[in-house]
Simulated scan of single mutants.
Amino acid sequence: MARGCTAGSSVVFAGLPVVIALAGLLVVGIPTLTKMGLAAAGAVVIAVVAALPLVPACLGFWPNACWRAGHARP
Rank of each mutant, 00 (worst) to 15 (best):
M1A: 14
M36P: 00
G4N: 08
V11M: 00
S9I: 12
L38H: 00
V18F: 09
A43L: 14
V19L: 10
M36D: 11
A65L: 09
V11R: 00
R73D: 09
G37L: 06
S10C: 14
C58H: 04
C58A: 09
V48Q: 05
A51P: 01
K35L: 13
L16P: 03
R3Y: 05
L54Y: 07
G24D: 11
A51N: 02
P56T: 01
V19R: 05
S9K: 14
C5I: 14
L22T: 03
W62N: 06
T34M: 07
A50H: 04
R73I: 08
V48W: 02
T34L: 09
P17Y: 09
A50C: 10
G8T: 07
L16S: 13
M1V: 09
V18P: 01
L52P: 02
L33Y: 08
F13R: 15
A72Q: 11
I20T: 12
A50V: 13
C66V: 14
L33P: 03
V49W: 09
P56H: 03
I46V: 12
G37H: 05
M1F: 10
L59N: 07
P31C: 02
M36T: 13
F13G: 15
L54V: 11
V48A: 09
L25Q: 12
G15R: 03
S10G: 15
V18W: 09
G8A: 14
L54H: 04
A7V: 00
C66L: 14
F13M: 15
A51K: 00
W62H: 05
A14K: 06
L33R: 02
A65F: 04
K35C: 07
N64S: 12
A2G: 15
W67A: 08
P74H: 03
V11K: 00
R68F: 05
G60S: 09
A2R: 08
V48E: 03
L25G: 06
I30N: 14
A2P: 00
V19H: 06
V45H: 04
V45Y: 04
P31D: 12
V28K: 03
F13Q: 15
F13P: 03
V49Q: 07
A2Y: 05
A39Y: 11
P63K: 01
V18M: 12
V28R: 04
L16C: 11
A40L: 15
A23P: 00
K35I: 12
